[in-house]
Design a protein around this nucleic acid. Structure first.
Lengths: 222, 222
DNA sequence: ACCCATACCGACCGACCGGTATGGAGTGCG
DNA sequence: CGCACTCCATACCGGTCGGTCGGTATGGGT
């Protein structure tokens, strides 16, 4: 066989993938054990990459943190954008669909369904402003998607109390992040699912959803 | 002056205070920078104690974490038990009073009003089950206080939907913990205050509070 | 006066931390 | 072919990590 080494042996990770592999490894490891507990060496091992590659692509561990926070948005945004709930014509149905989708993907161990940026920002908000800001951006960007549907829902179904789409969108993220914390503490997705259920009742009240319609939105069976 | 050394020179920390000083230091440092980022040496420095004292009182850093989680309950429970909202005769008023009290103490930087156990459990839920369990206990113990008032409120003011006192109490903690996360990300107490406001509206709806009475419970002014 | 448990001290340990220095393999381009 | 440049590999650095250990100080009991 002639020595055609156009590409590495195909089993080895392709050249140029180190950066992406490190970001993916960061998401996995930090979700399980936190930001500080995740070392550069460990990240390299998980990504199948050497330390030289790490510091070639990132000036510091902090720089990786910023990039990983932005990458979290890049990987989750398509997940939600491609979810089936967007086909609902009524924006309020899309909002409920989002919450049901959130419940549907809350499967497995907490480290598999909780949020990278929520975990990271709790450890870094006082020690690294670049990471904090990147996490804040990612949370806001995610909330902004929901905010559009909420704004349209407010338009179409005038709410019982004065609320803003931005405020409701952030409240939704607050409930979800809190659900992550309690779920980690209990080692179960139950607190998150319960919280989503309560949140749906709140929105049903706000938007005056008739009871028969409300239950079709996937009230969690016991 | 005769050498009466009944107690150390009064400027030095009294003998026997090392343990308490370490627990207090743990609360302060971990709230600011997280569990893993807080080293044993740093704890000793903050507490004005040597490493020998640390490992005399705690078998390991993990053991300190468990003790600090339990101590968090011991220090916060009296704070809430002594709060003025308990004097309300109507249990529902006490529930709203609790939430208003929560808002009132959300002052200063996030590290000054956020939760030690919420921060700690996020980092340790997968790596230390003793710490995770201790944090879970502390959260549940705090929720249990609220659960009693919520149970009485359900009794007195039959809710519009079927809810349980335990579920509502945990949902309250979920919202608060989520408010902490968003507040850290934004560097402001605003997300927490907004979340508490939304939660109060949900409860007002559930318990069918008349609108005029609801607003007297301290709706946050803009 | 003596004993002993408790409280505390601080030097020290091997492992590991984030980060650096240097060198070399692959690649596009003239 | 040669050269510059990107992408990585490896050895190594000073510092810090959680934890250990031999020792001292103190105070109460007898």
């Amino acid at each position: 066989m002639p020595p055609r080494v156009k590409k590495p042996p195909a089993t080895a990770p392709a050249r140029g993938d180190a950066r992406a592999a490190l970001l993916t490894a960061a998401h996995a490891l930090v979700r399980r054990q936190g930001w500080t507990a995740t070392s550069v060496d460990q990240l390299c091992r998980e990504a199948g990459v050497t330390k030289g590659a790490f510091f070639h692509h990132f000036a510091s561990k902090e720089a990786l943190g910023v990039a990983a926070a932005r990458h979290w948005d890049a990987v989750t945004a398509p997940l939600f954008a491609g979810a089936p709930y967007h086909r609902h014509e009524d924006p309020l149905d899309r909002v409920f669909g989002y919450l049901d989708f959130r419940a549907a993907i809350a499967q497995g161990a907490p480290e598999d369904f909780t949020c990278f940026v929520g975990t990271t920002v709790q450890e870094t908000f006082a020690s690294s402003d670049p990471i904090r800001a990147a996490c804040d951006d990612t949370i806001r960007a995610h909330a902004a998607h929901l905010e559009r549907d909420l704004g349209a829902a407010i338009e179409r179904h005038p709410p019982r109390l004065e609320v803003t789409a931005a405020g409701l969108a952030l409240y939704t993220q607050t409930v979800i992040q809190g659900g992550f914390v309690l779920s980690k503490a209990q080692g179960s997705n139950a607190p998150l699912l319960d919280a989503l259920s309560h949140l749906k009742r709140y929105l049903s009240f706000l938007f005056q959803v008739p009871h028969d319609k409300e239950t079709t939105h996937g009230e969690r069976p016991r």
